Simulated assay, not measured.
Amino acid sequence: MSRTRKGEKQDVSNCSYHVVHKLPPGDTPYVRAKHVQLVEKDPDAAIVLFWKAINAGDRVDSALKDMAIVMKQQDRAEEAIEAIKSFRNLCSKQAQESLDNVLVDLYKQKCGKVEDQIDLLKQKLRMIYQGEAFNGKPTKTARSHGRKFQVTIKQETSRILGNLGWAYMQQGNYLAAEVVYSKAQEIDPDANKACNLCLCLMKQTRYSEAQTVLEHVLQGKLLGSDEPKSRNRAEELLKELNQCQSTVFSSNSLGLKIEDAFLEGLDQLMNQWTPFRSRRLPIFEEISPFRDQLAC
């Protein structure tokens, strides 16, 4: 009996150890990689062990994602991008969406990958339209800082559009970014996207429109308006806006134009995917045509 009790105590101890360090149970290549990453805090050694886990077929979905995240933290974004592209075919269908999200973050970090980021974000929007996002469900469970929460298709669409707008801004294509941010705000408005939309309008010297957008943030009408980071940014933009309003340029002189068929008529493009119309999600019924906005 004493042996049994000792064994039971040992099992409890092992369980507590894994819980405290947020480690999966067992002694596989993936578990060893997580131990080195989280307990020993040796990212380079962890990357080597994640490679071994992938080659051994041990929790490949998690191993590839975790390795890419550690590589990103080590400023090895290029390697992480190539690793995901090379080995994602070994991962399950359920893991592809998470890998795409990691790729988007990597493209943001890696200069010169804006076009790749834009292409990936457009593909994610197509997946939502075709009913393939969230494995066809209207919501998914996400995790942040150890906390679980539900994300709706509406929120995900707005988030992806926000990332797409940011990518266009990196290209200096403020008109395209404005169109995308405006659409994102129609779906699920928040203070951060409003500030970016304001900046896009300012870059086009459309100061009165920019001020209207900014006032919604400063008046606390949007989600996140009360967060110090958002409010500080809004106040900085207001100062910049006040300085800019004394100088007026023609927006045509900026040479801003949209040369992207995806943006010139998103609804029209969606209508071309007729085989998937019966599976598309209601969120796209709520998006008004981009063309109407561009004609103004």
Results as ranks from 00 to 15, higher is better:
residue 14 N to W: 08
residue 76 R to H: 08
residue 30 Y to F: 15
residue 217 V to G: 05
residue 168 Y to A: 03
residue 243 Q to T: 03
residue 39 V to W: 04
residue 19 V to P: 01
residue 188 D to L: 07
residue 198 C to F: 01
residue 137 K to R: 13
residue 290 F to E: 09
residue 24 P to A: 11
residue 192 N to H: 13
residue 283 I to N: 04
residue 152 T to E: 07
residue 270 M to W: 11
residue 104 V to D: 00
residue 257 K to N: 08
residue 82 E to Q: 13
residue 224 G to Y: 02
residue 179 V to I: 13
residue 247 T to Y: 00
residue 142 A to N: 01
residue 104 V to Y: 03
residue 265 G to F: 02
residue 60 V to N: 05
residue 248 V to N: 04
residue 202 M to H: 02
residue 227 E to M: 12
residue 228 P to Q: 07
residue 157 T to L: 12
residue 166 W to T: 11
residue 107 Y to S: 02
residue 229 K to Q: 05
residue 115 E to I: 06
residue 253 S to G: 00
residue 52 K to Y: 06
residue 114 V to H: 12
residue 276 F to A: 11
residue 87 F to T: 07
residue 92 S to Q: 09
residue 131 G to D: 06
residue 196 N to L: 04
residue 254 L to K: 09
residue 234 A to T: 04
residue 56 A to S: 15
residue 88 R to M: 09
residue 112 G to Q: 03
residue 287 I to F: 00
residue 133 A to Q: 11
residue 255 G to A: 06
residue 42 D to L: 13
residue 217 V to Y: 05
residue 206 R to L: 05
residue 227 E to H: 11
residue 211 Q to K: 00
residue 177 A to F: 09
residue 122 K to R: 14
residue 76 R to Y: 00
residue 112 G to V: 02
residue 19 V to K: 04
residue 76 R to V: 02
residue 275 P to G: 05
residue 187 I to E: 03
residue 9 K to D: 09
residue 263 L to H: 02
residue 24 P to F: 13
residue 259 E to P: 01
residue 65 K to E: 13
residue 103 L to M: 05
residue 85 K to G: 02
residue 146 G to D: 13
residue 96 Q to D: 00
residue 84 I to H: 00
residue 8 E to H: 10
residue 256 L to I: 03
residue 94 Q to I: 12
residue 89 N to M: 10
residue 170 Q to R: 15
residue 197 L to C: 00
residue 199 L to D: 10
residue 86 S to G: 09
residue 119 D to C: 09
residue 40 E to D: 14
residue 139 T to Y: 08
residue 217 V to Q: 09
residue 268 Q to S: 10
residue 140 K to W: 02
residue 235 E to V: 10
residue 147 R to M: 15
residue 38 L to N: 11
residue 98 S to F: 07
residue 3 R to L: 11
residue 181 Y to L: 10
residue 204 Q to N: 02
residue 112 G to F: 00
residue 219 Q to G: 07
residue 133 A to G: 07
residue 238 L to S: 03
residue 240 E to N: 12
residue 215 E to P: 02
residue 71 M to I: 05
residue 58 D to S: 09
residue 56 A to D: 14
residue 5 R to W: 12
residue 227 E to W: 07
residue 174 Y to H: 15
residue 70 V to T: 15
residue 48 V to A: 13
residue 47 I to A: 13
residue 42 D to E: 14
residue 188 D to I: 04
residue 262 F to S: 06
residue 114 V to N: 12
residue 95 A to K: 07
residue 159 R to G: 07
residue 222 L to R: 04
residue 30 Y to P: 01
residue 109 Q to D: 13
